[in-house]
């Protein structure tokens, strides 16, 4: 999975926040790769470091946060040593990010056409009319009806789902190689989420983009992604192909998460819940961060578990992975 062809290869990424109260290791040694046309799901509960991972790749980490280690290779080039000017040129053209709140992308006081045309012309010498045509096409591509008319609207004239489509259309304008989508459907209704997932999947297949889909919802990843990384307390604890991870989870946390999904369990029966809650990442003690909630924990779990690969392409960070009953 870490072939030379990967669009993005993240190696040992560490992003820490140096706050007055202490150090928050929001991203602590994260590695993964995504190739052309591939969808990777990055899953975990709130505060585990998903968004900071996305921001780190985009070069958008602000103080007191700092990337303190690792590499982010984009088409082979390490972005962590790139100049801010170069990063600005990449953002919005080769790499784009979509957020849970589309207003992070949209400017409330500018018409949609103004914003879209500016985005195109910031990265390319192209006349106004052609830029407008491309903006129109992008709106059509994400399923916005009567795009000519909608180009002249302001963001507040759209519903939440439509606004998210516009944000996606803007992300697509310059046909990026990589899109990082940070919970873009979490605030949307099921039928609207379905529409957005459909567009994302279609675009990925048609344009061959690499897509990182950040979510707390395992079921969304199941339907969309090729591979999956499960994150807990700043670390990826399990990663592999979607079928491997969801059908044969080996990390106790993944097993617990899957057990927590109601529709996956007999109706009315108590769910196999994980006890306790996610730890604060502030001054987190060393060792496996899951050990206070883990039924398999032993003395050795106070040390740092390394990533092992019990099956080809399926990695886990645990001293006692759940391998019983697996070939």
């Amino acid at each position: 999975m870490t072939s030379a062809r990967s669009t993005l290869q993240v190696e040992g990424l560490e992003t820490y926040f140096f706050t007055k109260a202490g150090v928050v290791k929001a991203v602590d040694g994260v590695s993964f790769a995504v190739g052309r046309g591939e969808v990777m799901g990055l899953v975990g509960e709130s505060g585990c470091g998903k968004s900071v991972t996305g921001f780190s790749i985009m070069g958008l980490v602000d103080p007191p946060g700092r990337i303190v280690g690792g590499q982010v290779l984009f088409n082979g080039e390490n972005l962590l040593t790139a100049s801010e000017e170069h990063m600005r040129a990449l953002r919005g053209s080769r790499i784009a990010m979509i957020f849970q709140d589309p207003m992070m992308t949209l400017n409330p006081v500018l018409r949609i056409d103004t914003q879209m045309i500016e985005t195109i012309r910031a990265h390319e010498r192209i006349d106004h009319a052609s830029a407008r045509q491309r903006a129109r096409d992008a709106l059509g591509q994400v399923g916005i009806p009567s795009p000519d008319e909608r180009l002249r609207a302001y963001p507040h004239q759209f519903s939440g789902g439509m606004r998210q489509r516009v944000a996606i259309a803007i992300a697509l304008l310059n046909k990026p190689d990589l899109i990082i989508a940070d919970e873009p459907t979490t605030a949307l209704d099921v039928t609207i989420q379905g529409q957005i997932l459909y567009e994302a999947q279609k675009l990925c297949r048609e344009l061959g983009m690499a897509l990182i889909w950040i979510t707390h919802d395992l079921a969304v990843v199941a339907g969309l992604a090729d591979k999956i990384c499960v994150m807990y307390a700043g670390k990826i604890v399990e990663q592999g192909l979607v079928d491997d991870v969801l059908d044969h989870p080996v990390h106790p946390y993944t097993v617990g998460l899957i057990g927590s999904v109601p529709s996956h369990n007999p109706r009315g029966q108590p769910l196999a819940q994980i006890p306790g809650m996610t730890p604060s990442l502030l001054n987190l003690p060393p060792g496996c961060a899951f050990r206070t909630r883990c039924s398999r924990a032993s003395g050795i779990c106070e040390q740092e578990p390394r990533l092992s690969e019990p099956r080809s392409g399926h990695k886990v960070r645990c001293f006692h992975p759940c391998l019983e009953g697996h070939a």
Partner: peptide, 9 residues
């Protein structure tokens, strides 16, 4: 439209 764990890709 409900995403389900067993509905893959």
């Amino acid at each position: 439209e409900v995403p389900r764990l067993d509905a893959r890709r």
